[in-house]
Computed example of a mutant assay.
Amino acid sequence: MSPLAFETPPRKRRFRSSDNRNLIALDNEVETHRTFILVHGLFQNSEVWCNQFNGQLGISARLIAPDLRGHGASAKPDSIHAYEDGRLWADDLHNLITATGAQNPVLVGWSFGARVIMDYLRHYGDASVAGLVFLGGYLLEDPANLGAELLNSFPKMLDENVELRGEGDAAFVNAMFAEPPKPPLLDALKSVCGNIPYIVRRNMVGRILDYEDVMAGLRKPVLLLHGEEDALMLPSMSQNVSTIIPHAELKLISGCGHALFIEDAERFDQHLQSFVAGLETGY
């Protein structure tokens, strides 16, 4: 069985984007007042959250995990215009919340997924969400917060040569973890990366973004989680974000790298459960 397999297959929901694309999300449809929308990182997909769906969190909370545009089973338009407008990313998340009827969800963004949530917050605000969780969130453009492993692997991941892209994908996936992943997991995550077409990769990464004004205006509770051994997004990323969002709670997770929700799923899930237990709005 694949290390990214679901013990109980979640419902696959289809919804439309504001530019008329077909998008996909997984939904465990648990009937509860606690809902997490789990937004994956760059060149990944919703399957990376399988440990959360399979574990205690998936029993006690409703989990919704989209495949972002250009990723997974969602539409992969080859036009740069489908990726350069932050309003489109914001609308995708808004339309997902509307289509699923999610009430006061907690938005959870991993790496690039944190940017998608910031696009949503810029255009829709935080009034309709209960809280925000960013793990290894790529929220600041300062390259001083980027690890050498990312800077070394990323050019290959964007190369036109498929073999070089494969090498870059492998280096990128390896660098997600504090300890090298076992071959089945490495191969599964490399395969997820490999399903992102070259033209989509090139068109997706061109935006230079500044979210500091959005972060400074947040009013809902914010939790920042970051692996102490993250070699892709250095812990300084979240540490610096915590100075922009003064009420944010910052937790550095020992023994984990960039994929802390895979490396130590139980501990990650406990942090999410503790976070929602402390929320007042909507719970």
Rank of each mutant, 00 (worst) to 15 (best):
D142L: 10
G227N: 05
I80F: 13
L218D: 00
E141L: 13
E29C: 11
A277K: 14
Y283C: 09
M237V: 06
V200T: 15
G58F: 09
A130N: 06
F275P: 02
D264N: 14
G217W: 12
E249I: 08
Q44K: 05
V173C: 04
F177S: 04
P10R: 06
S153G: 03
M233E: 04
A171G: 07
S236I: 08
M233V: 10
E141R: 10
A65P: 03
P10Y: 11
Q103P: 02
G257Y: 13
A231V: 01
M157S: 15
A265R: 09
G255S: 08
A175K: 06
W89R: 02
E263N: 09
T281N: 11
L140N: 06
L132A: 10
G255A: 07
E149F: 13
R62G: 06
A144R: 15
G282N: 04
G70T: 05
E249H: 15
N203A: 11
M233A: 13
L250V: 07
R87W: 14
N104D: 10
K251F: 11
E228V: 09
A178H: 15
L151S: 10
Q52N: 10
V30G: 04
N161Y: 00
V241K: 02
Y138H: 08
G217S: 14
L189Q: 07
L279N: 07
Y211V: 03
S17L: 05
M1G: 13
A277H: 11
D187M: 07
V133M: 07
K12E: 13
A25I: 00
R69L: 15
Y198R: 02
R14C: 01
A170L: 05
P155Y: 02
L218F: 13
N145A: 11
G58D: 08
M118E: 12
A144I: 08
P105Q: 03
Q270V: 05
D67A: 05
V276L: 07
W110M: 06
T35M: 03
P183S: 06
E167F: 09
A175P: 08
N54V: 12
P180V: 04
N45G: 05
L132H: 03
L23G: 08
K190E: 10
E167G: 07
Y211T: 04
V39P: 01
A130M: 04
D264A: 14
A277G: 00
E179I: 05
G257A: 08
T243F: 15
M215V: 00
E163N: 05
E228H: 10
L151V: 01
L279V: 03
L186G: 03
H33P: 07
R14I: 09
A148T: 13
L26D: 00
D230T: 10
P181H: 06
V116R: 09
G206T: 11
G58M: 11
R16Q: 11
I245T: 07
H247A: 13
C256R: 06
N104R: 13
G109T: 05
D91N: 11
E29I: 01
V276G: 02
A265V: 06
P105L: 02
G125Y: 02
G72S: 06
V116N: 11
R122T: 14
P9N: 08
M204P: 00
I59Y: 09
L189K: 04
L232K: 03
N22H: 13
A144D: 08
W89K: 00
F53L: 00
M237Q: 14
D264F: 13
S18I: 04
D159A: 15
L260V: 03
N51K: 15
P181W: 11
A61N: 07
I59Q: 15
H81P: 00
G255Y: 01
D169S: 12
N51W: 02
L135R: 01
